[in-house]
Write a protein that binds this DNA or RNA. Structure first.
Lengths: 198, 198, 198, 198
DNA sequence: AATGAATGAGAGTTCATTCAT
DNA sequence: AATGAATGAACTCTCATTCAT
């Protein structure tokens, strides 16, 4: 039906539209919460008919699963450490802090997903995996820093990782941890870890 | 017709039913989130007609405001410190940790409210007040502990309070901070503060 | 509990409250139409509980029947002719015109009742009686005026009465016959009848 | 699949259903008044789901505005005079009289709208425009008739038009102006205007 | 005589989903 | 691949009415 050479790449176009719908749903959840997520609004944001949305996602739940994937993708892409061994820990703290500051939508969606996972075992599994990966990564950074002498060796890296992750995670709840408080917390974390700038 | 002791107190009865409805709504939010809050379900849980619910609360929003009050009451009642000056800090950490562990519903509702406050300025104000009070209280405990020599004096109590509050607050997101992780985080906090049990 | 002299006149008091409720319902119908008649609003206007209204009027329909009575009473009290034989006709035109102008509420209620009578045979009978009485009265005035030489004798008093009643009745529909138009119509009627002032 | 003549016209089909819903609402108002207008009943009369009604009309008020348009259309289509100059006036009286007789529903709806316009400024404007147009048209007929010598020249055409319109309008209130009375009134109007048949 | 509390039935409206085209 | 039209189920809210006191 289409020559290999000048083929209209249907799979690609289809994927584009799928992604556009997922991104629109992501935006809606960030702005209005699951409480205010309306499939019609998502379709309208992309400029397609509501029936078209159901062509790509048979149910609202399927669309939400798409949002979960997207959110995990966005979040995990920030996790990978970079920079020299000594700086990776501080880099990570700053990266996550900045991620939530620059794209608060991701924080909002992550928090919405965290709450929803209490009622959705499948989602709970996904969230747990992501969270475990995060915890392991932070713990790895801590161990390396300790080995390199940048950290007091008597620290239990598992426990410290829990505080780090907990503190960073709480920045997704703006009502509880305002921007200023989030900065204070991260700064104090750096002091305790002995990796403060100055 | 009624003994003085068990006298019928109509005002009390009305308050009772109001509270029963608020508590039922509280439970529903904890279990299903705002996403799944249905007035009919709330009425059914109390065993009254949906019209009766609207007799006490003209709108769903009014009912939700009732839930906000209840949640704030429940949470603030845990804030008041107790115990000797030296132990108050540790007591508080344990009290909040235990509160979320024993009544995870309160944690769930607090987190739901935190997310909702992003779309509800009135709620945002209430949450901010409560949170500020919490922060101030923790900071007060830290200052007293520092003055009494139980804490390293060079610590910035404002920043440390932010970490403490952030860590404790994150325990309301079970998906991010499982029970074990929450315990680890609190333990590490105690170590850093120098108030560990053993 | 009360001496015979200073007796609380229960029958009278009861009637007073009944009448207050009917008058309040009358006002509501005038302001919002049957479409907007709410028993709770009627009770509130009188300052009593909704259950008290149902003590006096078992159903909404019973209250409406009270309003019908009141409207008929108010309207019929304007019908009785007065003044010298020669002036009675003009007096009547002016009286009705002024009644609707001064108490537009009565006009509104009469029109509401007129429409409702299409669906309420009992009301239709009452309205027909009142209207027939009105028509007969106008016709009587016309006949007397003709007999006294104040009117052209060749007029068919029945037909003329129909025009007079129709024209006056239409003043209850403000949307169709504004105040100015109503005045014009009455003036022209007087000219045709030869009873104009100047 | 479809002949050019009976081609499926989607735009037309949509309009058809819209009109069917408006006509059904029109019928309901005529039969039960605004007091008894139920959207579910309207949808049922057309044989569609209540949600379908809301697909075409987002709110009940929007549906009512459709009814207003329809009523105005129906009424105004009768206004255009026809016949020779001398007969136009009589034709109009008969046409309106017959309209209300043959389609009493239109009369009922017009009266309902007249009453409602007291509480609905937008509707009041529409009614006033239609009514003014009617009044002007009747006055125009009167002036032409006077010019052509068919009418006594001393008549104030504005005032006479008011009586004519008022009398005809009152025929929409069956309770006040029964069929026989309406005929009498129109007959007498013709006599006064000197345009009676015999 | 009067009321606060409660309710059944039903109102308008919303929403995810389906289906013919 | 896409859509306009349609729907069933459910939602919040209303209202006349009832009942124990």
């Amino acid at each position: 039906m289409s020559t290999p050479q000048a083929a209209r790449r249907p799979a690609k176009a289809k994927d584009d539209r799928r992604q556009a719908l997922v991104q629109a749903a992501f935006n809606e959840i960030a702005e209005r919460g699951f409480e205010g997520l309306r499939t019609r609004e998502v379709a309208a944001e992309v400029g397609v008919n509501i029936a078209t949305l159901h062509y790509y996602f048979p149910t609202k739940e399927a669309l939400i699963r798409g949002v979960v994937e997207l959110a995990m993708l966005k979040f995990r892409s920030t996790l990978s450490p970079h920079g020299s061994s000594a700086e990776q820990l501080r880099n990570h703290l700053h990266a996550v802090r900045q991620l939530i500051r620059d794209e608060p939508q991701l924080g909002a969606v992550m928090a919405e997903l965290a709450l929803r996972s209490a009622r959705d075992p499948g989602l709970a599994r996904v969230m747990e995996e992501t969270n475990d990966a995060w915890h392991r990564m932070v713990r790895g950074l801590l161990r390396r820093a300790a080995r390199d002498g940048h950290l007091r060796p008597e620290l239990d890296t598992d426990d410290v990782a829990s505080v780090v992750v907990a503190t960073l995670a709480s920045t997704t709840l703006p009502a509880i941890s305002g921007a200023a408080r989030a900065d204070q917390a991260v700064r104090q974390l750096e002091r305790w870890l002995g990796i403060a700038d100055s």
